[in-house]
Design a protein around this nucleic acid. Structure first.
Lengths: 208, 208
DNA sequence: TGAGTGACAGAAATCGAAAATCGTCATATC
DNA sequence: GATATGACGATTTTCGATTTCTGTCACTCA
């Protein structure tokens, strides 16, 4: 049972076509929204038939997933760079909250169609969301463990605490909640106050 | 400019009719949902014309608001009774989180139509929601101040902290979020862990 | 043989007309 | 005068017909 041998030039042609599909989809999703963009629209822009798109993606849902993955990847990279960046763990945690809150509200205000798609992804449990939650909690856990290593955070279970911390900031990062509070001018300040509060919980205590 | 003199018997007849409208609306909302229940449906059950309903409520939205107020009043009374009840402030806060989480998920599983209405009320900023948020934060603040008075909670700003604590539990009490996580068996445990975490933040610290 | 497509069935979305709903007001009744 | 309603216009929702979309497959072509 040998695997089929893919010609290198063909593979790179297929990759280019796949990338073109993703790029086109992303552009159309930004303007029309993912629901209003048909696979035929994507194909038309690329001067190919819709059936050809299905040679690269098993379904339209897979295209949606790919675009949503792109959006969230930006956020995950930002979170990870903050988590591993300079500064004390305390400062990093605060910066992380601020960045997550800011990116979420910015997506809502500046890319409503993408914001709506991420919201739907969460609501409908698209696979990319579970990965996203993992990535954010990994970033939080990394900061927690750094804080524990340097003695500024209590030595409590880092896995569970990352999950709790993530849960505590749902109000600032969950698309539908953020949309509902979008008119409040003080969300950024509240996120910062939440960071201070969480840092109170994290610091070592004589009774620990 | 004398105020109109309302006959006592007439006032009590009007109150009874108003109450009958509310009771009927509540019953129909539970089975049909608030959107599918027409004012004419309510009137028909009471053998009156729809125009008569408008003598008691200025709009259908006002009826929706009245029913939503009833639901949330139950939750607010529960919160308040826990806040003022027996037990240490620490135990009370934990009991409050548990009760709020449990009531929210129960409403979803057992009264889906009512749950949906509360969710819409939050999303659309019905006036009753602001009052509800105030009531919950008042209950939290009461516990915080009791804890501060007895020395088990740090002396930090009780108003702001009540708001932060409330925000930290949005994941357990916000209808749309709760609905999205309804399949997770460990939400109750996570709410309890959140209580422990919040209590860590609240306890006095030598550096305070 | 790999790349690409036209044709197609079943499902979902859209459309425009009809029906229902909301809220108001003139009127009726006790 | 207080209580109640029929009639009505504007708006919203529903419904069945039509169109569009998703995904598949047999087929073509270089």
């Amino acid at each position: 049972m040998s695997q089929s041998v893919v010609h290198p030039a063909a593979a790179s042609k297929a990759e280019a076509t796949r990338a073109a599909i993703v790029d086109t989809a992303e552009r159309l999703f930004r303007t029309l929204g993912y629901q209003k963009t048909a696979v035929a629209d994507i194909a038309r822009e690329l001067r190919m038939s819709p059936a050809n798109v299905y040679r690269f993606f098993p379904s339209k849902a897979a295209i949606n997933e790919a675009i949503c993955t792109r959006i969230l990847a930006g956020l995950e990279h930002l979170a990870w760079s903050i988590a591993r960046g300079p500064g004390t763990p305390r400062d990093r945690l605060r910066a992380l909250f601020r960045a997550l809150q800011e990116q979420t509200i910015t997506l809502f205000f500046q890319e409503k169609k993408m914001h709506d798609m991420v919201g739907a992804a969460m609501q409908e449990h698209w696979p990319v969301i579970e990965a996203h939650v993992d990535a954010i909690e990994t970033a939080i856990r990394h900061i927690l463990m750094d804080g524990q290593a340097e003695g500024s955070f209590a030595r409590i279970d880092a896995n569970q605490t990352a999950k709790i911390v993530h849960t505590a900031i749902v109000a600032f990062i969950h698309p539908q909640v953020v949309e509902q509070c979008a008119d409040d001018d003080d969300q950024a300040a509240l996120a910062d106050a939440m960071a201070s509060f969480v840092l109170r919980a994290l610091r070592p205590h004589p009774d620990d």
